[in-house]
Design a protein around this nucleic acid. Sequence first.
DNA 1: CTGAAAGCGCTAACAA
DNA 2: TTGTTAGCGCTTTCAG
Lengths: 363, 363
Amino acid sequence: MSTERERTPSPTISEVAEAAGVGRATVARTLGGYGSVSPKTRDRILAAAKELGYRPNSIARSMTTGETRTLGVVLADVGNPFFAGVLRGISDAAREAGYDVIVLSTDESVEQEAAAIEVLVDKQVDGIALAPAAGRRETLPHLDVVAKRGIPLVLLDRLVDTVAADAVVINNREASREAVEALIAQGHRRIGFVWGPVTNEPAADADDLRRILDHALWSDGERLLGYLDALERAGIPFDTSLVTHVLKNEQQATRAVLGMLALSDAPTAIFATETDALTGALRAMRQRGLLCPEDISLIGFDDSSWASVMTPPMSVVAQPMHRLGVLTAECLLARVAGSDAPVATHVLEASFIARDSVAPAAR
Amino acid sequence: MSTERERTPSPTISEVAEAAGVGRATVARTLGGYGSVSPKTRDRILAAAKELGYRPNSIARSMTTGETRTLGVVLADVGNPFFAGVLRGISDAAREAGYDVIVLSTDESVEQEAAAIEVLVDKQVDGIALAPAAGRRETLPHLDVVAKRGIPLVLLDRLVDTVAADAVVINNREASREAVEALIAQGHRRIGFVWGPVTNEPAADADDLRRILDHALWSDGERLLGYLDALERAGIPFDTSLVTHVLKNEQQATRAVLGMLALSDAPTAIFATETDALTGALRAMRQRGLLCPEDISLIGFDDSSWASVMTPPMSVVAQPMHRLGVLTAECLLARVAGSDAPVATHVLEASFIARDSVAPAAR
DNA sequence: CTGAAAGCGCTAACAA
DNA sequence: TTGTTAGCGCTTTCAG
């Protein structure tokens, strides 16, 4: 933990200027591609720069220009396939425009989100894409700095209506409704929902649940609303015992589904709104020796190559993850470039992919 | 694309100094936590700083200190679950130490890798973690700059022996050998391998193949070596037609496995060294109406919750992705902190998880 | 078309 | 213990 690494420092603009026998400013103009320089000196400078292996010092540049050509991305978990896919999209679009990306994970914690934002503001990123941590839909005070500093912000995947910023989201509610309707169309009336809001006191009825969801900030909340919509349209009574209320990890999902399965009036179908919820349900069914779709029909969220090679292939609501990322970045970059278009919410469509995990309900 | 955003500029150290009625340096010392300051003025400065909402300008700091507290990570694809998992590990360890992470994907292209490295060097990251693009094991000239500039470098997942840098890898060869031996133990002698090297002229024999692999830089290459080892130990002749030689995407894997299945002496088991290879194999089997493990035994690479809820649950070689990332970051951060320990290669163990996708070979 | 010079906000060496 | 000062490398007026 001690000795110095030898660092051959990168040549500076002054050295290039000296080598080319001109002033610093002329070099800056040439290399920066602005102002005008006579072809002769231009060539001389270019030659000298190449000779010395000159590379502009981006930090010094940022210092004077105030821009870092870096975007910040804050999301729940980079390791999660959904966010990883979105990040890839953001990253691709950013790179295209000559920007790089700093990523921070929050694990759905508001504290970590605040810390992440602070880091990004301090690092002076040119723009921030934020997938807000799940939780209550209250003002996010840590975003005040972002606004005050005039840093462009785009909300990703989750909408916070108290924040006046562009947003890019999925039509979670409608897509979920469609999925549940596909179940209902096959005669299912007892449909389990994984995952509902984490709570000790499950909602008493649909209206109560709607009230809870109204204050939540949360993709699954929208999906639950879609579920409720489908039920309502079909005139199917809402049963609170068919909605999970536990911490969101696969084990809990398994346990919750096991609980539903033990009900005297057990569900004949399950709608799982995340991959973990689906695999948890599958695990529970396996434990009880139940088959899909013979015993229970299943619909999941987020497509993957696994879903389509399962036995049976799983019907899912597929989100355009990459596209979501690309659009987010484009939106953000437009603001960074100075766009003053009115704040807008872009809604991308998730698509229901029907495969073989849904069968008619047994009478 | 025009009007200015109002940016309330962050207060500078001078403003704090003025507000507190002291010199700039005193403020710097107080806020920077070095040198010594009298408790009195210290409090006054802290109060003023808080009052003004002072935040140090990290760019200006980097300008003088030469460090950015940022790490660069270059990998094939952030959207890939394996790399996403590794990135999460790197990110966690980096954050712990007060560092942030810039990620760049290369899609296994050497050109993109070179471009990524250039970007990171220009951005003056304090260290770089690189999962080299698959390809020929030749010197990577774009790494010269990194060495010349004395930027710490850690190789990740793939070993390049021409580069003198720390490395963190998996025991691919041994883990694969074990997996294949598990197949052999069940009486399998015709074992398909997905994925081998992309080539038009498949190797004539095992030695030829070894020679090819010797020049390749590629995790699957090590895995293929492990396969060869297992075959050799068991005295099973190597058959080139059981190794795929196509582009690495799921469709190609499907096609290649379809080809193997059409062989008069078709494989009774398949070892798939990536998730895409496994799902491709499953898809091919499904198309031919073949069942796992009754007709074909299967072993995949990389665990996921999907693998364990499949019918049947898939046996896999599981890599400690998160740990791999953490160790990489720790290793890199130690160098950044100035460690001059001898260059080392850390080998993490992948573990074989036996589930139900392997059955005894039919006689 | 070109050069000189100021200054971005901070750190660090030196004086007081 | 404090303040003064000199840069870090670049961009950007402003003269020439």
